[in-house]
Amino acid sequence: MIDSGIETTARQQGLVACTHCSRVWPTAATQCQRCGAKLTSRDARSLSRVWAWWMLGLICYIPANIYPMLETKLLFKVSGGTIVGGAVELFAHGAVAVALVILLASVAIPLAKFGAIAYLALSVQQGWQSNQHRRMQIYEVVEFVGRWSMIDVFVVAVLSSLVQLGSVVSISPGPASLTFALSVVCTMLAARSFDSRLIWDSIAKHDTNRDQVFKP
């Protein structure tokens, strides 16, 4: 194990680790005796759950971009604004920074997230030997950043509760707000379903293969 820089893993020692409290138990154990969490050495169904949430998230993300997030009623004239439309409007008003925040949070980040989760799942399924540290960084960024996409839903909530000025102007949420929120939740669940230990198992396998090759 020169590459990995560690002595051994819980699994190699016939142990199963609790991912909640870090204690280890004999492989036969199914529940952590300390914190009560369910124990799985490697979650075999982890990847199918990842793909299920990923698909559902993507399905919800498409209508979220087609239908309006907000419906503005200005003097009897109703207009709907999609995510991208809203950002373009802010851009035209000169609020460049806010427009960029919205574009980043609702378009760039969700798309990057779908790509990143798919890449991680495929890398494990196909046994790619790409850099573990980079994959780990991608995983951490997805976990950290994913929830921030919810900001657009909160903007819609605040605007439509506040801007209720009789016949002058009123704002109400559009159907995209629901599908967008669902899409964010699904991708968060997809990322959380991924068992990050699978990334590191590929080195272990690689090393044992090499050991066998060099054994007389």
Binding site: R11, A17, S22, R23, R197, I199, W200
Partner: peptide, 16 residues
């Protein structure tokens, strides 16, 4: 069980 209490595993990569 007492011996196992002296060990911890990394929750992210399973290193012992």
């Amino acid at each position: 069980t007492a011996a196992l209490a002296d060990l911890i595993a990394c929750p992210t990569c399973d290193a012992l």
